[in-house]
Simulated assay, not measured.
Amino acid sequence: MSRTLVIGANGTVGSELVRLLRAAGHQVVKATSRPVTDPATEVHLNLLTRAGLDTALQGVSKLFLLSPPGHTNQDELLKPVIDVAKAHGVQKVVLMTAMGANADDNAPLRKAERHLEASGLAYNIIRPNWFMQNFNSYWIQGILEHGKIFLPVGKAKGSFIDARDIAAVAARLLGTDEFNQRDFDLTGAVALDHDAVAAILSQATGQTITYQDIPEGDMRAALLQAGLPAAYTDFMMVILGFFKAGYAERTTDAVHMLLGRAPISLEQYAADYRSAWVKA
């Protein structure tokens, strides 16, 4: 039986991917930087120090790979994994970056993509747009404390994608060679501005949730106060600026083509995650 290593297995996409792969009969090993509690299903791996990298990839035939959040040198973290995967004879790599990563060949994520493309490995690259799940994680404090989505993006729209769709696409690609050597930009079916998102969340929760456009300086201060490193805060401000400029509005049919169904709608996401925003 093939052995599939999932890096980022405890994250929003990775945890769902592990569930889907196991349900499909894959032997899945979760890479974790935390202490290993079950050696049969987990392996220690620290991408920052590369501790455990060689051991983690021994006997692996398929690999799901992403960069841990909070770091801007993604190529320095990902390229060694690709090299060790090749050395160990990994048969297929699915790399998750982000929509727009291929717009600049000098961007760290694009450097990692290019390294994989030139590696000789069978691969897919998936580039999801902004996650719907940001509203129940990164942006949740403003919703819970003030009933507001606070972001500096004006009236710009985003084709938000549910992380469960990203995981489903990754599972599909890890289970077939039909689409090898291709990359896919993953989006929801429609683009919405944050006023529309707030209205959908309000409808799902029975509470009044609104969107408030805020100055970039306020957003930067909030991210730093939340503990984000300065370099990653700068990165976040850049990609929020891209959102405001309209680069997140584009939609693709990749999810429908790969899964044979429409992407999960924001209305469905809001219904499924309703408990995250409903005040006790």
Rank of each mutant, 00 (worst) to 15 (best):
I200A: 04
D104V: 07
A191V: 12
Q203R: 13
F179T: 08
F235E: 09
T251R: 07
R127A: 05
I166Q: 03
I214N: 02
L116R: 06
L21C: 03
M96Q: 15
R220S: 13
G70K: 05
D54K: 04
E249G: 09
A101C: 02
F184G: 00
T205A: 14
D105C: 01
H194S: 01
H194Y: 11
L174F: 03
G142W: 00
F160I: 08
H194D: 03
P108D: 12
Y269L: 01
A112G: 09
G188S: 05
K86L: 06
R250A: 13
L116G: 07
A262E: 15
R182T: 14
A196V: 04
A168D: 10
L78K: 06
L53E: 03
A103H: 07
L5A: 05
G246Q: 06
R127W: 03
E42W: 04
I143Y: 04
Q133E: 15
A168V: 08
T12I: 13
F243C: 05
A118P: 06
P152G: 07
G14M: 01
L186I: 13
E216K: 10
F135M: 06
R220Q: 13
F235K: 12
S67T: 12
A191F: 08
A112H: 08
D162I: 08
D38L: 10
E267A: 15
